[in-house]
Simulated scan of single mutants.
Amino acid sequence: MDEEPEEITNLVGREVYSNNGVFVGEVEDLRLNLDAEVVNGLAVTALNPELFDDVVTGKKGVVVPYRWVRSVGDVVLINDVVERLEERVEQPE
């Protein structure tokens, strides 16, 4: 039984969780590469303050690279967001 492919706009409004089950935020928009016809990233808002308050100041959200996405279903699962975020904060610029 062949299923119709989902439209990428169906991602908007889905909750985003790390693969460890930590709530990250909610998909508000998509970053697209129209020439290659691929999704480059997810614009995530309604961020989990425990993850982002120390890092994201004065911004409405973050863009999560689409390569971090592990699976899409009722929610979007992404790889190790907490560990990746902590590593970036600890590295001096």
Rank of each mutant, 00 (worst) to 15 (best):
N33G: 12
N48L: 13
F23T: 11
V55T: 01
L34Q: 02
V39N: 11
E15T: 04
A46K: 14
E15R: 01
L42C: 05
N48T: 11
L42D: 04
E28S: 05
L42H: 00
L11D: 11
L11C: 11
L30F: 05
G13F: 11
L47A: 10
V38W: 13
V39Y: 07
T45Y: 06
D54G: 12
L51E: 12
E37P: 09
L42Y: 03
R14Y: 00
D53S: 03
D35G: 15
L51Q: 14
A43E: 09
A46Y: 13
T45P: 06
D53W: 00
D35T: 15
Y17F: 08
D54P: 13
G41H: 07
N48H: 10
E26S: 12
N48G: 12
A36G: 04
V16F: 00
A43H: 14
Y17T: 01
L47C: 08
L11M: 13
N20H: 13
L11K: 13
V55R: 06
L51W: 15
E26A: 03
E50A: 10
G13R: 15
L30V: 06
V16W: 06
S18H: 07
E50D: 15
L30C: 09
V39I: 09
L30P: 08
F52C: 13
T45I: 04
A46C: 13
D35P: 15
N20Y: 09
F23R: 12
G25N: 10
A46R: 14
V16H: 02
V24F: 02
E26Y: 02
A46W: 12
V27E: 12
F23N: 10
E26F: 06
F23Y: 07
V44D: 00
N33L: 08
G21D: 12
V44A: 09
V22L: 03
A43M: 11
D53G: 04
V44W: 00
E15K: 06
V38H: 08
T45V: 03
R14H: 00
E26P: 07
N20M: 07
D35H: 15
L34A: 02
N48M: 12
L47W: 04
L51P: 14
L34H: 00
N20I: 01
V39S: 06
P49I: 03
V44Q: 07
L30T: 04
D54I: 09
N33Q: 08
L51I: 15
D53K: 01
N19M: 05
V12F: 02
Y17P: 02
